[in-house]
Design a protein around this nucleic acid. Sequence first.
DNA 1: GTCTATAAGACGATAGAC
DNA 2: GTCTATCGTCTTATAGAC
Lengths: 181, 181
Amino acid sequence: MGERAGGTKERILAIAKQLFLEKGYAGTSIADISGALGTTKAAVYYHFAAKEEILSALLAKPLAEYTRLAERAVAEPLTAAELLGELIDMTADAESVLSLPGNDPSISAELKDMHKLREKNDMIIAGLAEPGAKGTGLVRAHAAYAVAKQGTFAVMMANGGKLPKGARAELLDAALRALGG
Amino acid sequence: MGERAGGTKERILAIAKQLFLEKGYAGTSIADISGALGTTKAAVYYHFAAKEEILSALLAKPLAEYTRLAERAVAEPLTAAELLGELIDMTADAESVLSLPGNDPSISAELKDMHKLREKNDMIIAGLAEPGAKGTGLVRAHAAYAVAKQGTFAVMMANGGKLPKGARAELLDAALRALGG
DNA sequence: GTCTATAAGACGATAGAC
DNA sequence: GTCTATCGTCTTATAGAC
């Protein structure tokens, strides 16, 4: 009971998540992580063979979920409300770190084709737009997407990292208004 | 006439802007910049005493404009349409790089209190919200802000770095719908 | 204004003791 | 599972020739 919660590997991931968000992936060194952990660099390398593996471990689940959502968006006819709601929930999930690849260029540069994130983005944008929409018709889809991802992220940042009561519904409504018209 | 456009200093800034956007500030080395420039690292250091000075030179004007907008938002009674329109224009301005501090954690970490960007953000969010709005009432302001900044940025990225005709009006309308309701 | 050369340290990563 | 010690490389930055 009185223990420090979880194995070292999980603690490394928790620390890395926080530091990557604060200083970026390229701006965070293994020494930063081991320092916050209270051990040495070598201790970190016992649990992860390379810095990039920490990033991969951190992003594996969120990217898989995001990919699945993108595929559903093109396969099934998901409503805009369903799609945007899922995006808000994924962004708000404290365990997830879906905001990382979108907010840190040094990450996008690192895992470029690793999951073909850009492609998935386009699939979701297309799923949000009216069928056959093009050019400036996609602008509204981008606007709604921005509300669901960056809007949610901003509200969380302004509230100590958590979504306040009712904020999810407000964000979803705002995203739908941005989309609709 | 047949010249390569402008002094070396300006070329360095243009290259740095592009690389910082692609790989992030921490992920870009002086060697990367001098390589793209076609010279040596020392040549870069002749024009800038430190890497951070390149960043400062790049952000000076956009941050000053952003600060001025934030101050106007609390002093004069700016309409939401005026505020959001200016945000869209600042984000879309190719000379500006207002998207940099918001998109790269290694930059926010670097110039933290340099311009107190966070404070300016809050001033603009407050200027967007109805007077006296609080808690979840600010959610709509964050949503509108997200459309104006990240939405504009996303549309530009999807169109080769430029805003298509009519996109500005569409984005402004979408942001106002997200805000209103 | 740009070069070669190099300093001084941070970085990712490994070897081997405990 | 964590340590000390180290390797090789990359990084920021400087000195001095041209």
